[in-house]
């Protein structure tokens, strides 16, 4: 009885410590700053070459972006009609497309300046983090949407000047899905990636 009580107290204390520690580690703004710094560090390390940047930036983006939920959200309710193999294939291809698109946005030359504004709470485990990107004399409003999944804040959408990346693909996937289901979505992704690979050489 006594050991049980002791155990309970011990558990309560240690879990309180863990909660405090993880709350500190997982402030979404800190996570986002870390992600942005890591990406900029790679993009402006002098070895700028768009082809290799998308390869080099991949591990960083995979750490901070939740590509599973990005793909699921972009496809929408039709996702439930995909076979597990189709879901896997779509996630792999779409991840590749998002990473390439992201890497392409960095041009050699001046490094963009980034200002962070206060996070907005969308839900208890979701935040929107507005930032302003100052690039080549122009200012762009870029907001990152992040969610807390198993103790980690990860990015699930990027909203540039009011245009949500997921919402944009959601419209395209929807029209493809209505035309030919999962197969049409996978084919469109494959075609796009093949085309980009040819033109960038």
């Amino acid at each position: 009885m006594r050991t049980a009580r002791f155990l309970l107290v011990f558990l309560a204390i240690s879990s309180a410590f863990c909660a405090a520690a993880s709350a500190q580690n997982t402030d979404p703004q800190t996570v986002l700053r870390g992600a942005v710094d890591e990406v900029l560090g790679l993009a402006y390390d002098g070895k700028t070459d768009a082809q290799s940047l998308s390869v080099r930036v991949r591990p960083v983006l995979e750490k901070y972006f939740n590509f599973d939920s990005i793909t699921r959200r972009a496809v929408g309710p039709g996702w439930r009609q995909f076979t597990p193999a189709q879901q896997q294939r779509t996630t792999t291809l779409f991840t590749e497309l998002v990473i390439r698109t992201y890497a392409d946005r960095f041009e050699a030359g001046t490094q963009p300046g980034i200002t962070y504004a206060a996070p907005v709470e969308l839900a208890s485990t979701k935040r929107e983090l507005p930032t302003t990107i100052d690039y080549a004399g122009k200012k762009y409003a870029v907001a990152y949407r992040m969610e807390l999944i198993s103790g980690q804040w990860r990015i699930y959408d990027v909203v540039i000047e009011g245009v949500s990346m997921i919402a944009n693909y959601r419209s395209q996937f929807d029209s493809l899905f209505q035309q030919g289901g999962a197969a049409a979505i996978i084919k469109a992704l494959e075609d796009n990636l093949a085309k980009v690979a040819v033109t960038s050489k």
Binding site: L97, A167, N168, S171, Q172
Partner: peptide
């Protein structure tokens, strides 16, 4: 370059941008 259906992509982006 990043679009799967450029017509739909531009249309969706335009409407979102103007709404914002």
């Amino acid at each position: 370059k990043s679009a799967l259906d450029p017509y739909v992509a531009v249309r969706s982006a335009y409407i979102q941008y103007r709404d914002a």
